[in-house]
Simulated scan of single mutants.
Amino acid sequence: MAMSRGWRVAVSRRLTGNRLALTAAVVGSALVAALDTMADGWTPGAVALLIGPLLVCAHLGTRRTAAVAAWSLVLALGAAATHQRVAPPDFAAQFLALLAGSALAVRNAARHTAVALALARTTEVARVSQRALLRPVSVQFGGVTVRTRHHCPIPGSSTGGDLYDIVHTPYGARLLIGDVRGHGLDALGTAAATIGAFRDLAYLTPALGDLAEALDARISPDLGPEDFVTAIFAEFAPGEVRLVNCGHPAPVRLGKQIRLLEPPECALPLGLHPTPRPHRVFLQNGDRLLFYTDGLTEARDANGTVFPLLDQVGDALAAPAPSDALDALYDRVTAHADGPLTDDLALVLCQLNEQPLGSRSAPRTPSTPHKAT
Rank of each mutant, 00 (worst) to 15 (best):
R218L: 08
I219E: 05
S220H: 13
S220P: 01
P221L: 13
D222K: 13
L223N: 02
L223E: 00
P225D: 08
E226W: 03
D227H: 12
D227S: 12
F228P: 01
V229Y: 00
I232A: 03
F233W: 03
E235T: 00
F236E: 06
G239M: 15
G239A: 05
G239C: 14
V241W: 05
R242T: 05
R242Q: 07
R242N: 09
R242S: 07
L243I: 08
V244T: 02
V244Q: 12
C246Q: 04
G247T: 11
H248T: 02
P249L: 11
A250K: 12
P251I: 08
P251Y: 09
V252C: 06
L254K: 04
G255S: 06
Q257E: 13
Q257M: 10
I258F: 09
L261A: 10
E262H: 08
E262F: 03
P264K: 14
P264E: 04
P264W: 03
P264R: 15
C266G: 12
L268A: 13
P274D: 08
T275P: 03
T275K: 14
P276R: 15
R277Q: 14
R277L: 10
R277N: 12
R277D: 05
P278H: 12
P278S: 10
R280A: 09
R280E: 07
F282H: 15
L283T: 08
R288E: 00
R288Y: 02
R288K: 12
L290P: 02
F291Q: 10
F291E: 00
F291R: 15
Y292A: 07
T293G: 03
G295Y: 03
L296R: 12
L296K: 15
D301P: 02
D301N: 09
A302D: 15
N303W: 08
G304M: 08
V306Y: 14
P308D: 00
D315L: 04
D315E: 11
D315H: 10
L317M: 03
A318V: 05
A318D: 09
A319W: 03
A319G: 02
P320V: 04
P322Y: 02
S323L: 12
S323E: 15
D324Y: 01
L326C: 03
D327R: 11
A328Y: 00
A328S: 14
D331I: 09
R332W: 02
R332V: 00
V333P: 00
T334G: 01
A337F: 00
G339M: 04
G339P: 01
T342R: 15
D344R: 14
L345T: 05
V348H: 01
L349E: 00
C350G: 12
C350E: 05
C350N: 02
N353H: 10
N353Q: 15
